[in-house]
């Protein structure tokens, strides 16, 4: 019994970490640019496709594939940022943002399906990660630990970036008061573009390392579109700790719900969401805008 509980908790934490890695990018975008980007999952999917291609067709190693996927996804996202997203930073209403980003998602799904086919693409793991890992008293899948480690590293590095660097200071200034930051000589447009690239890079990274749990296929972008948005909303836009705790909470609600009562599907996940949003409309650790 205790082992089962440990297994479920481990699954919940690793699922939560995947949610965190992908959602934190969206959270930064929504905190800084106030863009409800429903196409965020589409860029995670692009990352997954690129990694799968790099591993299977180019035969590169797993770490290199991750790097290629992140860079590739950012490159693909540049025209979207330049032509479309830039118009909706901070000013448009939610409805405009939702529709524009749903449109972008549909285009990406349509193109992915046309170019790569409707089947799911696997991302083969290196031998070190595909086997079990011996904890001394119990064997657990190594990939789960890898995902958890990736999530913790992401959180730590982001915290360092935002809390300790010059860029982070400028970024927080732009979040707190964009006009004042601009008046003080901070080029907010540049910060927005950098934050957008960072968000897309994180999405792609999460898409690759989470592919075991969220398989890469054309409808990935639509299937998890809502999930990432929900994590950000529950955690509070722009907050790393908020996104981390929301990911853990929702990962736990979803995994235990599916374990104890699989026939209820996502019922418990969304019940938790309704309760959390109703009690904390600005997110668990978010601030009122």
């Amino acid at each position: 019994m205790a082992w089962t509980v440990l297994g479920v908790v481990l699954d919940a934490i690793s699922y939560g970490m995947v949610l965190f890695i992908i959602s934190i990018g969206l959270s930064i975008m929504m905190g800084l640019m106030r863009v409800v980007n429903l196409a965020h999952g589409a860029f995670a999917m692009i990352g997954g496709y690129l990694a799968s291609y790099a591993l299977k067709s180019l035969g590169v190693s797993y770490p290199l594939a991750i790097i290629l996927a992140v860079i590739g996804a950012i490159l693909i996202s540049i025209p979207f940022e330049f032509l479309l997203y830039r118009r909706i930073y901070r000013k448009s209403d939610e409805l405009t943002q939702i529709l524009l980003t749903i449109g972008i998602t549909f285009v990406i799904i349509g193109v992915a399906n046309y170019a790569l086919g409707p089947t799911s693409k696997s991302i083969p793991l290196p031998a070190a990660l595909s086997g079990p890992f011996d904890l001394g008293f119990r064997m657990i899948p190594a990939h789960r630990l890898f995902v958890i480690a990736c999530g913790l590293c992401t959180a730590l590095l982001l915290w360092l970036l935002i809390d300790r660097t010059e860029f982070g200071v400028r970024m927080r200034a732009a979040v707190d008061n964009g006009d004042m930051a601009e008046a003080l000589g901070i080029r907010t447009q540049l910060i927005f573009t950098a934050a957008f690239a960072l968000a897309i890079g994180l999405a792609a990274f999460g898409g690759v390392v989470g592919a075991e749990l969220l398989p890469i296929e054309p409808f990935y972008a639509l299937r998890y579109m809502v999930t990432f948005l929900v994590v950000v909303s529950v955690g509070g836009a722009g907050s790393i700790a908020g996104a981390l705790s929301a990911s853990m909470l929702l990962g736990l609600a979803d995994t235990t719900g599916k374990y104890l009562a699989p026939e209820y599907g996502e019922f418990f996940f969304y019940l938790a969401v309704i309760l959390a949003v109703f009690l904390f409309p600005n997110g668990l650790l978010g601030r009122k805008h």
């Binding site: 529709l99 285009v107 349509g110």
Partner: peptide, 8 residues
């Protein structure tokens, strides 16, 4: 889907 997305 692509056409719909572009239209949107």
């Amino acid at each position: 889907m692509t056409i719909l997305g572009l239209m949107l």
